[in-house]
Design a protein around this nucleic acid. Sequence first.
RNA 1: GUGGCUGUAGCUCAGUCGGUAGAGUCCCGGAUUGUGAUUCCGGUUGUCGCGGGUUCGAGCCCCGUCAGCCACCCCA
Length: 439
Amino acid sequence: MAVKIPQGVRGMNDTFPEESVAWQALEGDLRALLALYGYGEVRLPLLESTDLFARAIGDVTDIVQKEMYTFVDRNGDSLTLRPEGTAGCARAAIQARRLRGQTPRFYYLGPMFRHERPQKGRYRQFHQLGVEVFGLSAASIDAEVIALSARVLRTAGVTASLQINSLGSPAARLRYRALLLDYLRPRRAELCVDCRERMEHNPLRVLDCKVAVCQDIAHAAPRLVDHLDEDSFLHFNSLQGLLTALEIPYQINHRLVRGLDYYNRTVFEWVTDALGAQGTVLAGGRYDGLVAQLGGADTPAMGFAVGLERLLALQRLQSGVADVVPPLLFLGALEDAAVARTWQIAERLRDAGLSVVTGGPTHFKQLMKQAERSRARFQGMVGGEQLAGAALRLKEQAGNGQWQGSLNAIHEGLHSLGVDFPERAPHTVRNFATARTSL
RNA sequence: GUGGCUGUAGCUCAGUCGGUAGAGUCCCGGAUUGUGAUUCCGGUUGUCGCGGGUUCGAGCCCCGUCAGCCACCCCA
């Protein structure tokens, strides 16, 4: 009787060991880097109340209008799988009163969910590293965060180009919006249909359109930088000076406007043309109004997010990703009677912190194939002869190293073949002892 | 949400005019072999993505649907 095979949810991927080592390596490198800058991890829920995202991201954005995974829980509350991390992070910081005092520098790492049509570099469950700083309004923190973002890319071994812009204060942005509309309205008929729609709810996005006609119109449009408020203008100048001092090359992109409502002043993006249509690998900016908007004390904030699938894809293209680390030793048992002894030896070597995989009991030929496939550095086969005292042979699989000796002397054998034993075996005695004393 | 392309063995792919499931590779078990091999025997290589329709008969034709890829849109 045929049973229907369950299918994973569209746009959500499973990751197997060959692939997950690259994730682990990247995540490890990033965590180490963040510690270097004094950022600490916040672990946030994947679910928030739907209302939070509507208020934070802006309820006319595509994300809120048509991309959220929203459901009603058993209490009748409307909950949403987070489509981005900033809203939840701000909510948590407000709730835990972490907005002042020692300057909060946070990061988070994990899955986000958006119901979009999957394509290259875009999935329904995807992963972001996000960084958020609260309470600092000076351009110096913008420079710090952008420098950190530059090093995120450098750490991953990828290159992209930095584009920056300033959206000014909300008031200046509103004034500019009116100016832009005055400019666009007479040209409305020339714009593409999407842009005519954009004029209604988010005219700044017309500047970002890919259609040639719209780009021409956008190039001749009044520029945001020319209509910034005084403070934002100075802030932007100050940031540029700092980026130059830090030797971080950038381009000012007057048409760079971010999609989320909460941004003001500095916005930035690292872009590449190596990933097809999804060229933005890392993006962020300042969101001074969000915390107050969510009911917290008026607190400036700055942050960014990196798409880890995109970062990894770029890494795979540009510098290669981490590969599986093969075990040190393959130990095979040639017959039932040899299993117990072989497994004991494997356990002893693991006590000493060495990685050992076992095989058998089965025929010699099978074991040889298994040994080769394991990619272990060394290989040894245990049968009745070894149990009776005959010499065990250790062989280097990819080289010529060899050793023969008694089963009990396998430590010495490995040592003579050049194996370094760890100072302390991390997975054994220490954990056992801690467990006992804490109980 | 819209559009284009593609779904056959674990993998890479054939499959003619609609007429009985194929190759290579890999994998598994057994015999021989005590060190990377060979040989021999045997095996799953499969609801031809799924569901319907036409037909005496569908991997092939028609409709629907799902998934993957790419682009639009949007975003990291």
